[in-house]
């Protein structure tokens, strides 16, 4: 039994190229072709198909919204995103919505064919050239450094200054708020950074978040 495929892409030339490419496979059958998400949703009401090749950037309705709408109605539908976007945000969002494949338009035809086959089998397929993004975004940021003493090694004054800096005060604003001189704040800040082995304000903010310094307001 052939794999029934629908192509949704606002770019007609691309669609026809794609159709030509896929129709060479014996077990693929292109059952539909639309230029917009709205048309696809209408089409889904009329006929059944196995795989939807879906573009993200389209004028009326973005691929993400189309996928959402379709998967709500037909949870079993296998959607493969076929896009130019190489950024982890798009990848992550669409996988979260429930797309089963993510393939870049610049990848080779064989890759797309492979993606369709494995998704049809029930697997997931993410373009190898961006699968790395997914991994790095899951690994995420290193936790703030804990080994160097943490909150206890700060004096109450330093803690207060740390909190203000992490809240987005400039040095002179912190000085004004605490009725001390700018130089004093700078000195405290230097001490705080040295004690906690922090290098940048971003690290300081992370430290403050992890140690609950920002909660009290």
């Amino acid at each position: 039994m052939a794999i029934r495929i629908v192509i949704t892409d606002d770019h007609a030339v691309f669609r026809s190229g794609l159709r030509a490419l896929l129709e060479r496979e014996d077990d693929f059958e292109i059952v539909g072709e639309t230029g917009s998400g709205v048309d696809t949703i209408k089409l889904a009401e009329e006929m059944e198909f196995d795989i939807l090749l879906l573009d993200i950037s389209m004028p009326d309705l973005s691929g993400a919204r189309v996928a959402e709408a379709l998967l709500e109605k037909y949870p079993a539908l296998a959607i493969i995103i076929l896009t130019m976007h190489e950024h982890e945000h798009y990848l992550r969002e669409l996988l979260q919505i429930g797309a089963r494949g993510y393939v870049l338009k610049k990848s080779t035809g064989t890759e797309l064919v492979q993606a369709i086959r494995s998704v049809f089998r029930g697997d997931m397929y993410v373009d190898p050239s961006i699968a790395g993004l997914l991994v790095s975004s899951y690994v995420g940021k290193p936790a703030s450094k804990q080994e160097s003493g943490g909150l206890q090694c700060l004096t109450p004054r330093e803690k207060e200054i740390c909190r203000l800096l992490a809240l987005g005060f400039t040095n002179s604003e912190a000085a004004e708020k605490l009725f001390i001189s700018l130089r004093t704040v700078e000195a405290h800040r230097g001490n705080i950074m040295a004690k906690l082995d922090l290098k940048t304000r971003a690290e300081l903010v992370r430290f403050a978040i992890d140690n609950g310094l920002l909660r009290s307001d």
Binding site: H11, V13, L18, A20, M84, T108
Partner: peptide
């Protein structure tokens, strides 16, 4: 750039892939 030129280039890519077959 992204959606027109990029897409057209993608189409070209597809055509080349078709020709290769």
């Amino acid at each position: 750039l992204h959606d027109q030129l990029g897409q057209s280039l993608s189409s070209v890519l597809l055509s080349v892939q078709g020709l290769r077959r």
